[in-house]
Simulated scan of single mutants.
Amino acid sequence: MLELWRLGYFVAVAEEENVGRAATRLGVSQSPLSQRIRELEAGLGLALFHRERKRLRLTADGRRFLDQARTLLAHAAAVEQQAHAAGRGEGGRLAMGFVEGAVHAGVLGRALRRFRQDRPGVGIELRAMRSGDQVQALRDGALDVGHIYTPPADGLRIAQVAEEPYRLAIPADHPLAAEGDLVEARLDGEAFIALPERGNPQARAEWIAACRATGFTPDVRVEAIEPATILGLVAAGVGLAMVQESLAATAPAGVVLRDLPAFPLRMRVYAAVSENGSAAAQAYFEIAVA
């Protein structure tokens, strides 16, 4: 396999058409340079130069090889530049997981906007994923950055980046929607729409505990993931739901949102990155938590 330095020697000699001038340009001795060129020709089985008294002229094979050598050297330089940029967090690609709450709270959009301004050369691949799946993907190296609801106990850099209260979404034609002072105990046994327990059993347990602490036990009849789907089901009269406050602006007609001041749970989103993640991943994490 050809070493890149040999190609560099050949290009210098071809451009100078003189070994002495090429040696000065390269900062090497003339005699070893001549030997390296002869070794290159022997290795290729080609005569690259016509040798005259004080001048070397490229053969037809030499001209073709010069074009190829320049292309290879330019490609190698580009690869090296890209590697250096990735090492500084200025290039490469980030695989980024997120939960819907990060989008609606605005944290994902704000962080991405700042990151793109600071590091426009980094490509972004966004993946909507459950928190548990993101944590596993981060640990496996399949994901660079995550935005999750439930942080793991250890193994990742974690920081909270968003927090919002929950509001109660009620079908507009439900009797509770018209009550002036909502009594939490009236919610006991009402049909609720909730996030799937299988995807995050810890989050479901915390939510049930918060409901009970508020004075009611929800009867979960339907499970759904997408906030838009949940609100659509509420509007259709399927049940009640607890949704993050920032969804109020996008709630469809047929949904009434009420405050539950006694409800202790908050919607929290955390940024997560591997301790040994890339420079770009660490840079995004710092921007997200700033």
Rank of each mutant, 00 (worst) to 15 (best):
E52L: 15
A95C: 04
L126F: 03
E80D: 14
D140M: 12
R167N: 00
V79H: 13
R93T: 08
E223R: 09
D61C: 02
R268T: 07
N18Y: 06
Q30I: 09
G43L: 10
D133V: 07
Q202N: 06
E90R: 09
E52K: 04
P165T: 05
A76K: 09
P171T: 03
A224T: 01
A210G: 10
D67F: 07
S31G: 06
R21D: 11
A194S: 12
Q82R: 15
G87A: 14
G123I: 00
D67Q: 15
N200Y: 05
V273M: 05
Q81C: 01
G92L: 04
R268M: 08
R36C: 01
L187Q: 08
N200T: 04
G101N: 05
A47Y: 05
P175D: 11
P151K: 07
R186E: 14
W207Y: 10
L33E: 02
L257Y: 01
P32A: 10
R268V: 03
I225M: 13
P120Y: 04
R36M: 09
G121Y: 08
E17T: 08
L112I: 13
G121E: 08
L260W: 05
Y149F: 14
Q136I: 09
V220Q: 01
P218V: 11
G180R: 14
P152W: 09
T24A: 13
G232K: 07
P201G: 06
Q81Y: 00
G132N: 13
V135Y: 10
G254C: 11
V19T: 14
R63H: 13
R38E: 14
T59G: 06
F115G: 10
C211S: 12
F10E: 10
R127C: 01
Q30W: 02
T250C: 04
G27H: 01
R127W: 11
N200R: 00
E184S: 14
R212T: 12
N276G: 11
L58W: 09
S246R: 09
G155M: 10
T217R: 10
A205W: 04
E206D: 14
G27W: 05
P264I: 10
A85L: 14
Q134H: 03
L247G: 05
L108R: 03
E197D: 08
